[in-house]
């Protein structure tokens, strides 16, 4: 079964999540200013922002879906398509390039069979390139979900991937 078929993105946002979004909107100086926070709340629950959810959040913030999509699609870390259970953010900027990002990318390709932008068939990992993570003194660096890792080498990279099921 593909990830898209499993996607809960077609279900309406539940009352609790709508309340959370309303709360961040109240805290903001203008409702629309809560857009990034609101999208992140939805993404935390569903992994990505479906068209349906985008429209619902836009209505809560008194924006048009197009306006909110202009925000959502601008950001590297707001996902408008489904991702795997864990997202690997592999830094491809210059300090990591110097220190062996290509080797890390090749190893992920060999172990998981995915290139940047792809998701494993079992939905376990999505690999995405990310700009400089500000961890350059420990390059090459990456994040998995919200966890940061540096000083990657072949053994360490394998051990990290094992932690995520």
């Amino acid at each position: 079964m593909s990830i898209a078929e499993q996607s809960p993105g077609d279900a309406p946002l539940d009352a609790a999540l709508r309340d959370e979004i309303a709360a961040v909107a109240r805290h903001a100086e203008q409702k629309r200013a809560a857009g990034t926070d609101a999208l992140k709340l939805v993404q935390k629950r569903f992994g990505y922002i479906s068209d349906r959810h985008l429209a619902e959040v836009a209505a809560l913030l008194e924006m048009t879906p197009a306006e909110l999509d202009g925000v959502a699609t601008f950001y590297n870390l707001i996902f408008r398509r489904p991702v795997g259970r864990h997202v690997i953010l592999l830094c491809d900027s210059v300090a990591c390039w110097v220190m062996g990002e290509a080797a890390a990318r090749a190893q992920i390709r060999d172990r998981l069979g995915i290139k940047p932008g792809e998701t494993t068939a079992d939905g376990r990992f999505t690999l995405l390139p990310i700009v400089c993570l500000g961890h350059c003194d420990h390059a090459p660096a990456m994040m998995v979900d919200e966890d940061q890792y540096g000083d990657l080498d072949a053994a360490r990279l394998d051990a990290i991937l094992e932690r995520y099921r």
């Binding site: 203008q30 601008f74 950001y75 590297n76 707001i78």
Partner: peptide, 25 residues
């Protein structure tokens, strides 16, 4: 304390302000 959605141009000060307003930065 505002958490960005992640884009280099937001470090440009006027784009940063636009981002804070909730518009495409």
């Amino acid at each position: 304390v505002h958490a960005s959605g992640g884009r280099y141009i937001c470090g440009e000060s006027s784009a940063l302000l636009t981002a804070l307003e909730g518009r495409r930065p």
